[in-house]
Amino acid sequence: MRISVEDLTVTLSGRDVLSGVRLLAADGEIAGLVGPNGSGKSTLLRTVYRHLRPSAGRVLLADRDVRSMTPVEAARHIAALPQERGGDFEFTVREIVAMGRAPYQRAFAGEGAADREVVAEALEQVGLGGQERRSFAALSGGERQRVLLARAFAQKPDVLVLDEPTNHLDVRHQVELLALLRAQRRTTLISLHDLNAAASLCDRLHVLHEGAVVASGPPREVLTPALLAQVFGVRAAVVEHPLTGDPLIAFDHRAAVAEVARA
């Protein structure tokens, strides 16, 4: 299901954090948000999954404004994995993932066999099958991240909204997560700091800078040395990945160090 952002402005504490943003994640497409810290990526994602209300513009799921949906209806269509996770949860792994089935359950009805099957499948997908009874509070940061992703999968949404989902994951689990998202082919809007991961994973990239989208398109067209210098303030070459053929960004770390030394 397509999700589009039309002329979105979000004002927080009297300041426009986003201004006139337009972007698209087509049906079954993985669209990435990249940009420096403070460029508005998290604010945009929070607006998409209705945590924030825009001061102008709208977010459309297919052709429907997400603000016109009830919370339950929105939760059946959009699942989010935000950066802010809250504190330790005194729940088991299975209980956390089962929360993803709440939009489909009537009050006090409890879960059925279909819900239990979906929860088990979601845990298998993130590599935590057989870990259902572990305490969420006792997990490592990477394990918690995968449990929360499983909860999002358990919602069976049309759209996934993921804010830095590779945070706290080691290299192996980062690679596995990106492969899993690619295999699902579910409409996904994802923010990533790792530009090489974004280039490998995403069908389309939207580059945010100072609250505005400054470039959109396929990674190979968007991630140019000129844009990297303009938006991120780094010197880099863009070459072909020797294993996958994806764009691979080689940063000039010596230039960056020299720049800092001169400051």
Rank of each mutant, 00 (worst) to 15 (best):
A120C: 08
D170Y: 02
R116Y: 11
H253A: 13
A199K: 10
L208I: 14
L148V: 07
P71E: 03
R76V: 08
H209Q: 14
R146S: 04
H168R: 01
Q125E: 15
V231T: 11
E221Y: 09
R220L: 12
Q105R: 15
L177C: 05
G86Y: 05
R134T: 07
T224S: 02
A258Q: 11
A138W: 01
P242T: 03
A138K: 04
D158L: 13
V34R: 05
L8N: 05
A199Y: 09
G233S: 12
L201N: 07
E6R: 15
P157E: 09
E84R: 12
R185E: 13
H51F: 11
G35R: 04
V5D: 13
A75M: 04
A258R: 12
Q174E: 11
E164W: 04
E121R: 15
T47R: 08
A31C: 14
H193D: 12
A197Q: 15
R144P: 01
R254H: 11
T43M: 03
A183Y: 01
S216T: 15
T166H: 03
V126D: 08
S42D: 09
A255Q: 08
A109P: 10
V21I: 13
P82E: 06
G233A: 11
T224I: 04
A261N: 01
R186P: 00
A183L: 02
R101Q: 12
E111N: 11
A154L: 13
A215E: 15
T224K: 01
S140R: 07
M99G: 07
R2L: 08
L205W: 02
A98V: 08
G245R: 05
D203Q: 02
V10I: 10
A197Y: 10
T9K: 10
A31I: 01
L52A: 05
R22M: 06
A25K: 01
L243F: 07
L60I: 07
L180M: 12
Q105C: 11
A80Q: 05
A102N: 09
Q83C: 09
A62Y: 00
A109Q: 15
R85V: 05
V234L: 14
M1G: 12
H168K: 01
A26R: 10
I3G: 09
G86L: 02
S191E: 06
T9Y: 08
G28T: 06
E84M: 07
S191N: 09
L18M: 08
A179V: 01
A263N: 01
D252P: 09
V161E: 06
L149H: 02
G20L: 03
I3M: 12
R2V: 08
A237F: 04
G129A: 15
D158H: 10
A113N: 10
A120W: 04
G217H: 13
T92W: 09
E117K: 13
L181C: 04
R151A: 07
V239A: 14
V213C: 15
F153G: 08
C202L: 05
R172P: 00
Y104C: 06
A237Y: 03
S4T: 11
E95F: 08
H206K: 02
A237I: 01
